[in-house]
Design a binder for these strands. Structure first.
Lengths: 169, 169
DNA sequence: CAACACTAGTTGGACTTCCGAGTTTCTGTC
DNA sequence: GACAGAAACTCGGAAGTCCAACTAGTGTTG
């Protein structure tokens, strides 16, 4: 989680200074963008480190959680892609691996023969519980922020997601 | 930038509800994490769409900007990796491509023969100016937030970066 | 000054993601 | 009932990232 070669200064603040010095537009948006990029990198690295003992990537973990939360423990692959905002081919790949790991298997859809369901099994549920404990224990790398701040962050990014057309709002 | 298959509801709010219903820990951190992941995806897609006419990925664009901002228009590859938080291999790959595109070339370090410098040329500077115009025009996909919100966002994520050891703070 | 450890960059391999194209299966319309 | 169009999934290929191992050059230390 910690950076092996820390800088002595805030690279994003420095970039913003230069951005403005060059007379470029939208410095606040640039700084926020770069901050989100870096935050995502930090959070992802933290989570993946916690997930390594379970041989799960964050994407596979998210997919497992989604299935664990679903009504019957199964969902059509396409619906998974919609929920996780992933390309269909990525879903195929993820389900392939989870199936190889014996945590999930593909099942025929009861009425639509085009559709395949991914179904989580008992091993999958056990793993997802343990993996969640491990990830939660790291606080997702967000220990520096309290719950009020986290909620404000989530609310701000919600606006962004609505504007991008993720959901009606 | 807009999602081809929008959901009718907020998937992250729904995930949080289920997370709490299962009695799992740190729901606020989970929701914030997932929000950052999705925000990064949106922003990246927006930027890459704007950069496509210039045949640049966001990573290559960031590298070009870094070089354009540097004192002599050149930096050692390792230093670029530190600033951009990239693995040395990724820097090699990025500079390879920028060199193929004729925007950058590798130069020997004046005193240390291990080190190579990436140096931006006139074409590179011209492209980075135009690309910046294109990216700024999209507001980085953050049009839904005003400058005050963007600054609060940046400040919160700054805490996170300090905690991860990016810089002393 | 010789041996050893460290640093800078590259190479090859595994993994993930997306895009385009293709197959199979519905669905709506005439 | 036939058929054009849409939908669900998969396959092959390109691009990007990281890791482990390697080469070459530098620094340190006895």
């Amino acid at each position: 989680m910690s950076n092996p070669r820390p800088l002595g200064f805030d690279a994003i603040a420095e970039a913003r200074r230069q951005w403005e010095a060059h007379g470029w537009d939208a410095p606040a948006a640039m700084a926020a963008t770069t901050s989100i990029m870096r935050a995502q990198q930090i959070i992802l690295a933290t989570a993946e480190e916690a997930l390594r003992p379970f041989d799960l990537t964050f994407a596979r973990y998210e997919a497992l959680v989604l299935l664990a939360f679903s009504r019957n423990g199964s969902l059509p692959l396409g619906k998974m892609g919609d929920r996780l905002m992933l390309h269909p081919t990525s879903v195929t790949n993820i389900v392939d691996r989870l199936e190889q790991q014996g945590l999930v298997h593909r099942v025929a859809h009861p009425t639509d023969r085009r559709t395949k369901l991914a179904e989580i099994n008992e091993d999958g549920r056990r793993i997802v519980d343990k993996a969640t404990e491990a990830v939660s224990a790291t606080g997702f790398g967000m220990g520096a922020l309290d719950d009020a701040e986290l909620n404000r962050l989530t609310a701000m990014l919600r606006k962004l997601r609505v504007a991008a057309g993720d959901f009606p709002g």
